[in-house]
Simulated assay, not measured.
Amino acid sequence: SRACSIVMLLAYVAYLFFQLKTHRQLFEPQEVEDDGDDSVSQDEAVLGFSSAMIWLGVMTLMTAVLSEFVVSTIEAASKSWELSVSFISIILIPIVGNAAEHAGAVIFAFKNKLDITLGVSLGSATQISMFVVPLSVLVAWIMGVPMDLDFNLLETGSLFLAVLVTVFTLQDGSSHYLKGLLLLFCYIVIAICFFVLRQRGNGSNDDVHHQLGVASKPWRI
């Protein structure tokens, strides 16, 4: 897991270098010319670079403090609500925590800025899977905390299904309501799977695989 985490971090750094340096023109938004109006309206920056960095630091600090409270109370909430920890941490918390990000993506989509919408949604998913997760494994290694990339069958299948549906949805470069419904239905199916899942005991992978009716040997990456 630690070796894979290092490789994933290197791949993410290469992706950033490709996107921001060598092939930046591929990720720039396409300008749409309006024949009826010669003056093209440009969005003005609300914050400067220094102000944005200050606000980013303040919000990051506040998020870190609040995350400590969330982590310390998630197991108690799981018992009181009679929900699995997986459902709360994978479904409920991301919906609430990323509410502003979701709202921003929807607003940009209404403004017909699909490139920014995809950048917000897919960029966040890529950052979590290729940067945050492997970085957490390496930080846990340094701190002496046991953590690896040992995903159970349901989590691995959900990740594979989400990536597969997203690729087939975006491959032709068009968008309509049916594709949006398909993505929503896919998310609902994944949420139902984690809602039905009940982790017994300490929530180990063996318990999860026993509930799924498969072999108890986990998929170790």
Rank of each mutant, 00 (worst) to 15 (best):
N98C: 01
I128P: 08
S121D: 02
L92V: 11
V139F: 15
T117P: 01
L118E: 00
I90R: 13
V120R: 01
F110A: 06
A109S: 09
Q127P: 00
V139G: 04
A109D: 04
W141T: 14
A103N: 09
L114N: 03
S80D: 12
V96D: 04
A140S: 13
S80Y: 07
V132W: 01
M130D: 01
G119W: 08
I93V: 14
F131K: 07
V137T: 10
I142F: 14
S89F: 04
L122F: 06
K113W: 06
I107C: 00
I128L: 13
S124T: 09
M143I: 06
V120I: 11
I88A: 12
I116D: 00
V85I: 13
F110W: 05
Q127G: 02
A99C: 10
I107A: 06
P146G: 08
V132T: 07
D115E: 13
A140I: 09
P94D: 02
K113R: 14
V85L: 15
G123A: 01
G119M: 11
G123R: 01
A99M: 15
A125C: 11
G104I: 03
M143K: 12
S124A: 11
H102I: 05
S78F: 03
L114E: 04
H102M: 07
L114G: 02
V139E: 08
I128T: 10
V137E: 05
A103K: 12
V137K: 02
A103G: 07
Q127E: 08
F131V: 06
D115R: 04
I74L: 10
I74Q: 05
V120S: 01
V85T: 15
L135C: 04
L122A: 02
E101Y: 01
I90P: 11
V120P: 00
E82Y: 09
T126S: 14
A76T: 15
G104P: 02
G97W: 04
G144N: 11
V85M: 13
S89H: 06
L118A: 02
A109K: 04
A105W: 07
A105Y: 05
A76H: 15
S80A: 13
N112Q: 09
V106G: 01
F110V: 08
L92H: 05
A99I: 09
H102N: 08
I95V: 12
P146A: 06
A103F: 13
N112C: 08
V96R: 06
A105I: 03
W141I: 05
V106K: 14
K113N: 12
S89I: 14
S78L: 07
L114M: 10
P94M: 03
K111N: 14
S78R: 06
F110C: 14
A99N: 11
E82A: 15
